[in-house]
Nucleic acid binder design. Structure first.
Lengths: 298, 298
DNA sequence: TATCTAGTATAAAAATTTGTTATACTAAAC
DNA sequence: GTTTAGTATAACAAATTTTTATACTAGATA
C-alpha cells in the first residue's frame, strides 16, 4: 500500500477513466491499471465495475474513496508539518553553556547577536561541562560555550575553538590599601585574606598551584562556591579574591569593586566554543559562532 | 511513501532500536536502516539522531510520529470498512423486476425466500425491462425478474432462464353467463366486450394476433393500461379481459373474479430470471434464483 | 453487418526498488 | 586493548513497478 496506488485510485474514481487518470498522473495507462488491480487485491474486493468501456466505483470503492482522500491529505499534512519544523529549526540556535560563561559572558554575546541577526532565536541552557557534552551528543543543544581551567576531556568527540582568554585578576573592595594600583607584583599578595571556591573547582586548583610556584604565602580565609557570594563578601571588606575578570566586570564598571592586574600571574580561564565532531554544526549555529569570533577578534 | 516505511519508522521510534524493530517486523536490520533513510530523504530531514549506538527521534521525528501512527490507523480502518461492506453485500440481494412480476409475482417469491433464508436481505426495484438491463450492467441490481410476451433483446449480454409460464386466462365477473364453466372454447369468446391494455403493450399485440388466428370476432370495448383498473371494471360488469393468471390470482381466490381457461388459446407470459452474462451472478443472488426454481419445479 | 474508435487488460521486457548477505564502522563495556 | 552491541554500507539477488507492444471489448460509424 502506498501513495501511488491511493492517488491512482482517487484520480481514476474522479475522472472515471483509467487512461485520463494515467495522463493526469504522467504514467502510462497499463501502469494505472495494474496499480488499481493491486489495490483491489490488497483489499480483496473489486473497487470498480468494468463494463467494457465504462468504469465506475463499486459500493466498496465508494466507501474507500473518502478514506483514501483523507489518507492522501494526511500525508501532505505530515510533509508540511515536518517542513515547518525544519524551517523553525533553521532559525533557532540552542546554546549550552557552563555556569560561568552562561551567566557572565553569554548574555552580552547573545544580546549583540540578536541585534545583528534578528531572524534568529536563541535559547541558553546552563549545565555542567560534563552534561553539556552529553546534550551536544544527544542533539539537545547545537553549540556549547565552555570555560576551562583544566584539561579538555573527550577531545576527539568535539571540535573546540578558543574564543578568548579570560584573565584572573585580584579583586578587592574600594577600602583596600591597594585600591589605587593599576597592577601589582605577586609578592604584594602575601598575607591577603583570600576567599576562594572549593577545591573541586579547577580554577581554585590552578590558582593555588600558581601562587605556590610564585612563592606567595597567602592566607585562605573563606571557602564558598558562589561567585556572587564572594563578590558580596569582598564588598563588605571580609576578604579579597582572585577571580575571572568577566565575573566582576559589571561591578568594576559601576565602581563597586576593584580588579587589579597581577604581573606575571599568567592565569586565564580559556573560553571555548564547542560542538560535536561527528555531525558538524548547524548553519544557524555557525552564524552565531562566527559573530562571536568577529566580536572578539576584530 | 508506503506503509512499510511508516511502520518501520513507528517501530524504530518506539523500540529506540533499528535491530529490534527489524526483528519485530521480520526484516533484516539493513532493510530497516534503508527504509528509514528513504523516509528521511522523502521528508528531507533527519528523523533520528544517530549517536553511534544510540538512536532517538529528532524534533522533526517527534512531530511526525503521531501523524505516522494516525496514518497507519487510518489504513487499518479503511481495510475494516471495505471488509464490512463486502460482508454486508454478501448478504444482500438486489432484485430488479418489471412491473407485472414485481407487483404480482415477486412479493410471494421473496416472502418464501425470506422465510427459508433469513440470513439474507432483499431489495426490489421496479423498472422497465429496458432500464433493468442498464441497471444490471451498471451493477445496480444483482438479478432481474422479467416477464416477456415478445422477443428477448440484447440476448448475448444476459443469461436468461425461464422460470415459469404464466398462462393468459379469460377473466369475467361473477355475473357473467360463463361463470360456471371450467374451460371454454375460443369461439365462445365471440362478441365479448374486451377490455385490453394499449397496443404498445406486447401482451395486447400477442392476444389480438392469436384471436385473429383462431378466427374469434371479439369486440374491443375499452383500452386502459392499468391492470388494477381493468380488474375493477370487470367486477363492475363493464366488460371482460384476457389477462395473466398471476395478475388475477388474488381476486380469483377470494371469489371477486373468475378466471376461465380457454382451450387451445396457447398464450403465456414467460417469466425469466436474468443476469449480466459478463460478470456472472452473486452467490447470494444464486441462492435466491435457486430457491425460486425449486419453488416452481418441485 | 462490418469497420473503426476509444478504453481497458494482458504479456513480456526493462528499469527501479527492495531485501539480503557479508562486511565495515562506531561507541560503549569489559 | 579486546570484545560486544548496534548501525551503516556495498554488492548482489529478488521482487516490484513501469513501459512497450498487443489483444480484447463495447459502442459508434458507415
Amino acid at each position: 500500500m502506498d501513495t501511488v496506488k491511493l492517488r491512482a485510485f482517487c484520480t481514476v474514481a474522479r475522472l472515471q477513466s483509467i487512461s485520463k487518470a494515467a495522463e493526469k498522473l504522467s504514467y502510462t495507462q497499463p501502469a494505472i491499471s495494474t496499480q488499481i488491480r493491486a489495490l483491489e487485491n490488497e483489499y480483496g474486493v473489486e473497487l470498480f465495475n468494468r463494463n467494457g468501456n465504462r468504469i465506475d466505483l463499486t459500493e466498496a470503492g465508494h466507501q474507500l474513496l473518502p478514506m483514501a482522500q483523507k489518507l492522501l491529505g494526511l500525508f501532505e499534512e505530515s510533509r508540511e508539518t515536518v517542513k515547518k519544523v525544519t524551517e523553525e529549526e533553521k532559525h533557532f540556535i540552542r546554546i549550552g553553556a557552563s555556569a560561568m560563561p552562561g551567566v557572565y559572558i553569554l548574555p552580552e554575546l547573545v544580546a549583540k547577536f540578536a541585534q545583528d541577526f534578528p531572524q534568529y532565536s536563541v535559547s541558553i541552557s546552563i549545565a555542567s561541562a560534563f552534561q553539556l557534552e552529553r546534550m551536544m551528543m544527544d542533539n539537545e543543544v547545537d553549540v556549547g560555550i565552555i570555560g576551562r581551567s583544566g584539561p579538555t576531556p573527550n577531545e576527539k568527540h568535539f571540535i573546540e575553538a578558543e574564543l578568548f582568554d579570560d584573565p584572573l585578576v585580584f579583586v578587592i573592595s574600594n577600602n583596600h590599601p591597594l585600591v589605587e594600583s593599576h597592577a601589582i607584583e605577586p609578592r604584594q599578595l602575601t598575607g591577603e585574606k583570600l576567599i576562594l571556591p572549593p577545591s573541586r573547582i579547577l580554577t581554585r586548583v590552578a590558582v593555588e598551584e600558581r601562587l605556590l610556584e610564585l612563592g606567595v604565602g597567602y592566607q585562605l580565609h573563606l571557602e564558598i562556591s558562589s561567585s556572587e557570594a564572594i563578590k558580596r563578601l569582598i564588598m563588605n571588606d571580609l576578604g579579597v579574591s582572585i577571580m575571572c575578570e568577566s565575573v566582576v566586570k559589571t561591578e568594576v564598571r559601576s565602581g563597586l569593586l576593584r580588579a587589579i592586574h597581577v604581573n606575571g600571574l599568567n592565569l586565564w580561564r580559556k573560553i571555548y566554543v564547542s560542538y560535536p565532531a561527528n555531525k558538524g554544526i548547524t548553519f544557524a549555529a555557525h552564524e552565531f559562532v562566527d559573530s562571536v569570533f568577529r566580536a572578539y577578534h576584530s
